[in-house]
Design a protein around this nucleic acid. Sequence first.
DNA 1: TTGTAGGCGTTATCAG
DNA 2: CTGATAACGCCTACAA
Lengths: 341, 341
Amino acid sequence: MAQLAGVSQATVSLVLSARSDGKAATISEETRQRVLDAARSLGYAHDPAARRLAAARNNLLGVFSFTATFPTDVQHSYYPFLVGVEQEAAARGYDLVLFTGSSSGGAGAAGPDALSRVRLADGCLFLGRHAPGAELKRLVADGFPVVHLGRREELEGLAWVGADYVSASRAVVEHLAALGHRRIVLVREADDAPASADRQRGFLEGLAAVGGEAGPEAVLRCADPASAVTAERVRALVADGVTAFVAEETDTGAAWRALDAAVREAGLSCPGDVSLGLLGSPPPDLAAAPVPTGFDVPRHQLGAAAVRLLAALVAGEEAQEPLVACEFRTGATAGPPGRRP
Amino acid sequence: MAQLAGVSQATVSLVLSARSDGKAATISEETRQRVLDAARSLGYAHDPAARRLAAARNNLLGVFSFTATFPTDVQHSYYPFLVGVEQEAAARGYDLVLFTGSSSGGAGAAGPDALSRVRLADGCLFLGRHAPGAELKRLVADGFPVVHLGRREELEGLAWVGADYVSASRAVVEHLAALGHRRIVLVREADDAPASADRQRGFLEGLAAVGGEAGPEAVLRCADPASAVTAERVRALVADGVTAFVAEETDTGAAWRALDAAVREAGLSCPGDVSLGLLGSPPPDLAAAPVPTGFDVPRHQLGAAAVRLLAALVAGEEAQEPLVACEFRTGATAGPPGRRP
DNA sequence: TTGTAGGCGTTATCAG
DNA sequence: CTGATAACGCCTACAA
């Protein structure tokens, strides 16, 4: 302890914690310097564990992901989010501690106290849709600041930030409508993720707003897009008056892949005969193809927004707007409706 | 606290810490179950901070990198190492805590206690060559388990793991020699990194071992490879009897780039007229080119080895072999010496 | 086998 | 303005 070197005992706490604090006048300059010198010569530093134990702040923000943080398969990693998280945290003077969920490989990860270690930090950010509700609930019930990255409304009181898929999807439809399209079909997968539901909702809203036909036949919900969305199917729909298709983005990109393949196989030219929209970003392996009209999820900004919210919670402030706007991408797959064959 | 639910008070500590411990006979099965049940129903879990403060283990391994952990420029990130680190940590039942060095953007990062927060964990792994010696020294002096990823012998008592560049470089030279080369030139940059020194040493050792000419003219040390290694230079050397070149790998890949460009510009065919070796892996943007004869740094394994060493230190065991072997890559840029023009 | 007491390093409260 | 003192939650003897 530094008090041995100086003369005081827990006065050191005052001078050390009030480093750049506002209330600096509470201690005499002399002892202050004495303490500072002693601390420096001893190479003294706070013990973060003790500091936190004593109900103080750590200046640490936790990040917990339920899949491996550094997957060998770099495909669906949270890297882009984490970039934003790290930048915003740095900007706000917070340090990051990343808890890897996959660690303790099946042992601790599954255990009931898998999440307890996040209490090392002042608050924690959760990534991934597999966050166990019960544990999160307990955390927020204990008053521990928690933010979930991704819409999560089932859990009462759980703060979250998410992309505004509804508005973004709607904007894509409106863009198509502005080009003259009225009969537009959404291709989506069968699984019921909030992100899918949001996109469909935005799609239907957009359709309704522009006076398009928003009946149930406007959405193609298929368990296996590859086999459901065939060339004949597309040809038939086009013959029936459909002039544009939009696909939802998923991990696999199955809907977009199927749509793309079917149109190509049907011998339809893309911006010419039919217009295509993608409710999200194309899978990396299709990035070389003509860039799809659609929108990009602002992953960096989402990460940053999550950190902002978490910082607010830690500081005891109120939550702000959880939705982050997506960025419209003009792309090259949408044009005026082709003449019906 | 769980004692309210059960009947005991710190007995809970015994049963909870002896979870899968060897000495299980120290507590009666009945109270044990009672405590366990109470803990489960209350959702109780250790407070990691308190646990650590009480001189116990956390089961947390720290990772500290001095550059951004998630750089926007994905070029020189530690990602490949971290993959290995995460896997090995998971395999050993450790959880990972990643401290981002760049956070606290210039404020806390530079502060004297920037490293103090790693004490939250049972030990810490340091990545990057900018680790401040003084702070590391203090950490090891305090008996805190520390492992540095990358050779670091100047700091007495600092444990480290690194790639065996010497042997790997030597192997490349010996491969060339086996093909018949005797006059080989090393192109390296001027800056004095341990990794560069190691490669040069291995190069010279190899040359000496095969009876090649290992004089000082065998290594081209240039501040700016691009301007120093020109087509004429290469042509002159070849005319003088040099049949093979090797370049060191660096962040920028400048040496290899320069060599590659110069040879091409000199109108020399690569496996035909001259053989080329790369002491490391090619930069990503040159990965499409014919794969260079050389070696790959086993980044995953390095990360894993670092975790193993750190775990050993935490457990109070002794350090093991710090060097990890690189993997020879046959490649397509080396063949028998061409006829001298 | 279990409960009791002391201490880990820090902050917060409250007298001097 | 400063110095005691009591938590914070847990662990490790030691005593019952």
